[in-house]
């Protein structure tokens, strides 16, 4: 009888089961972070300075308690808000040669709408009884209007969309020179179409 028999192989078949159990445990207890949202900056508290804004430069968006949308004194569908906001911001209401003329605007130059994107202010007024989801829809559509204009301007000037520039900028593997270049471009676009969203605190009726 030989003393150096080959040892029997350990059965590794159940190892997979153990690993699967661990895997399932992690899947159940954990959640992939999916935090995304609409970022807004509220005005600082001691900010009571009075600025005169011309009526044409103010785009009033109203949401009433039953969740109906009124834009510039007219009832509007939620799906039409984006387009209305774009034509307001990108109007370019001052003719060429005059002060404040917007050379890159592609709007119709309507005398009722904004003079140029730097002056265009969107004022959003909500009531306390308005549903939160409707408010988010309006915020989203207004954001979409700005994004659309910024993307257009960016593709025209640099051949890359604004969104793509931002994602590339926040990507850590870009070179420092590239990052600086991107930062300047992003800033330029943001100056072309500054996001001016005003939230009017509602008075109690």
């Amino acid at each position: 009888m030989s003393r150096f028999r080959q040892l029997p192989e350990v059965n590794a078949g159940s190892m997979a089961d153990i690993a699967f159990l661990l895997l399932i445990f992690f899947l159940v207890t954990a959640a992939i972070p999916t935090d995304e949202g609409l970022l807004r900056i509220s005005p600082p508290e001691e900010n009571r300075s009075k600025v005169e804004i011309r009526d044409r430069n103010l785009f009033e968006v109203n949401l009433n308690p039953s969740g109906e949308l009124m834009v510039e004194q007219e009832i509007l569908k939620f799906s039409e808000l984006r387009e209305a906001a774009v034509s307001f911001i990108d109007n370019g209401g001052i003719s060429a040669g005059n002060l404040g003329h917007c050379a890159y605007c592609s709007g119709s130059g309507d005398p009722q709408l904004s003079e140029n994107p730097q002056k265009a202010i969107i004022a959003l007024q909500v009531s306390r009884e308005t549903g939160y989801s409707k408010y988010v829809t309006v915020q989203n559509e207004l954001q979409a209007a700005y994004n659309e204009l910024r993307n257009n301007a960016s593709t025209r000037l640099y051949g890359i969309s604004f969104q793509a520039m931002k994602t590339e900028y926040s990507n850590s593997n870009a070179t420092p020179e590239r990052k600086q270049d991107l930062q300047q471009k992003i800033k330029k676009i943001q100056e072309m179409y500054p996001q001016k969203l005003l939230e009017i605190s509602t008075t109690n009726f």
Partner: peptide
């Protein structure tokens, strides 16, 4: 709520 223009928090 749903949104389409949301940005990812870094």
């Amino acid at each position: 709520p749903n949104a389409t223009e949301a940005e990812r928090l870094t």
